[in-house]
Amino acid sequence: MSRVVNAMKRNNKKSTFILQLTAMVDMFTIIIVFLLKSYSTSAVNITPQKGLDLPMSSSYTSPVEGVKVVVSKMGIFVQDRQVITFENGKILNRDIASEDSDFISDLFKALNNEAEKARAIAEKNEEYKFDGKIIMQADKELPYGVLKKVMYTASMAGYADLKMATLSME
């Protein structure tokens, strides 16, 4: 064994050595190609969060710009800001208007703010038009009863063009 070490010492006179990076560069090249393939500039971004599992659909239409409403098991989020908190996946009675069982007051306020902002921009900028598009990302296990309330409130706030975000089966 010591003979081998001595021979190696004799052969390798230099005290520095060159690191073999070829394999690592190969690996990085493969990773970059894979990442480039899945690079996205999509209008809708999903922020992974607890209680949001989108359903799968055979639809292949690319997402469009619109107000992002997330309905997860935790609550309702408008443009990533939580406006309603759920308890056991259900809307609390205090969040529902007493005179209308499908009307969620805080959600209406948040959406109405967004609509007013959009209308104010549309007044100043002729190229921009308020089209009332809403992109709903909802958890697949949520009952239609909850979604119906969200849709109803959204339509009251002027958002009648509903787009449902789903995961592609590809």
């Binding site: 989108l54 239409t61 449902m164 975000a165």
Partner: peptide, 9 residues
């Protein structure tokens, strides 16, 4: 990078 692709109906 997106690992899940979102579509709309």
């Amino acid at each position: 990078t997106v690992f899940v692709k979102v579509t709309i109906i």
